[in-house]
Design a protein around this nucleic acid. Sequence first.
DNA 1: CTAATAGTGTCTATAAGACAATATTCC
DNA 2: GGAATATTGTCTTATAGACACTATTAG
Lengths: 239, 239
Amino acid sequence: MSPLPPASPEDVPHIICTVDVVLLTLIGARLHVALLQRAQAPHAGEWALPGGYIHAQTDEDAAAAAARVLADKLGVHGVYLEQLATFSGARRDPRGWSLAVAHCALLPADAVPAQGPAGAIRWVDVAGLAGTGQPAALPFDHADIVAAALARVRSKSQYSSLPVHLCGERFTLPQLQAVYEAVLGEPLNKVSFRRKMDELAMLEPVPGAMQTGAANRPAQLWRVREPYRQRLALTQRGL
Amino acid sequence: MSPLPPASPEDVPHIICTVDVVLLTLIGARLHVALLQRAQAPHAGEWALPGGYIHAQTDEDAAAAAARVLADKLGVHGVYLEQLATFSGARRDPRGWSLAVAHCALLPADAVPAQGPAGAIRWVDVAGLAGTGQPAALPFDHADIVAAALARVRSKSQYSSLPVHLCGERFTLPQLQAVYEAVLGEPLNKVSFRRKMDELAMLEPVPGAMQTGAANRPAQLWRVREPYRQRLALTQRGL
DNA sequence: CTAATAGTGTCTATAAGACAATATTCC
DNA sequence: GGAATATTGTCTTATAGACACTATTAG
């Protein structure tokens, strides 16, 4: 913090403080991001990441502001949410020097809403969205933010339980493996995957609950053990 | 971003936007963090992380503000600098709702200044500083910020070339291994360490340069290859 | 019975660590 | 030569992946 506070509030050029949320889910084994149509300029009418000003009167902190955006604009509650990075500078927003604390959120695939309190939600496949110079490019630096979220999710999925937050409360191990494979973009060895899930000691079988109905052996249903509902389980050496 | 811009600037409670820097270096094989004595309230006279307001007029972005703080308050230029996380909320600073984009910087051990442009620099061993309720506790939430920096550096050191930024331009492999061991807090296997450094392909021997003078076989001096001066080299499986 | 997928056993390949031999220097 | 540390070779152990076998269901 500076040794010299500003002489008066007018001396301090206004910094626009916002949060942006990259809400990701799996649709058809591919990661999709939630976009909302902007109601106001700049970029009115364009599809962009949900976000909003930080409300210093009511928001406990930036994470609470992001949770409020998720609830108020997307109708999404209680999902996994983590801070991603802060994007700032004079040129990213035409309104002036701005700062966005970007967050990343994961939504179970079986709970994807098409309509939120703030209008329709468009779910866009992240493939070809986070690169540069796309046909359907995102406004502001939102493509960079989505790219950072993707990198974070893929990186953390290599050594943690992060992808369980893309599953519902109960899931089979083949389903969970498919989620990991979708996020990582590569097939995984079944035996190694199960060994790792066993080592993580993060899952417990739901007693007596099996997924049946298909023309094959039923699969055991699993759920996340209580200590790992909020925090992640980590492996030492990946996978 | 919100669909409804504020009716007037006065409607927006002021958010104090700052950057804080956790500048780390190795002193006697232990990580130390640079602290400055605060000249102004709050916490005037206490030793705290160097930081300052973001200058929207002149700072390109938050990273530039952090680099400016490093230069102006510590006299440190050109070191490795990365964004850590953003700490925000109403209660972390008595002046009001504040937001600090924390950064982490690494300084070569052979270039530790004791005096900066803003006065003396105190280098404090991070052991017992980042926990809770220390005798020499840091003001604001700076203990949390230091803890986050430590966690980041230790985590990244497990699978990247990050610690080379704690070394000078030239170093021997035994020196580099000692740096890794100091950061990670555990001894490493010499053969494995050298295999990994070889795989990373990030170092090159300085032709003909050996570290001599000791009563033993001279050690080859190495430097970081050009492509890795700014970005990190990453391993797949750690170490 | 057949097809289909779940779950497991086991062998092989690869990576990490232990140990020790050799290489060079200063004294 | 002797002490000290750098560097390298090689064996052992641990981990990851390939492959195939058994289990269980619907039809």
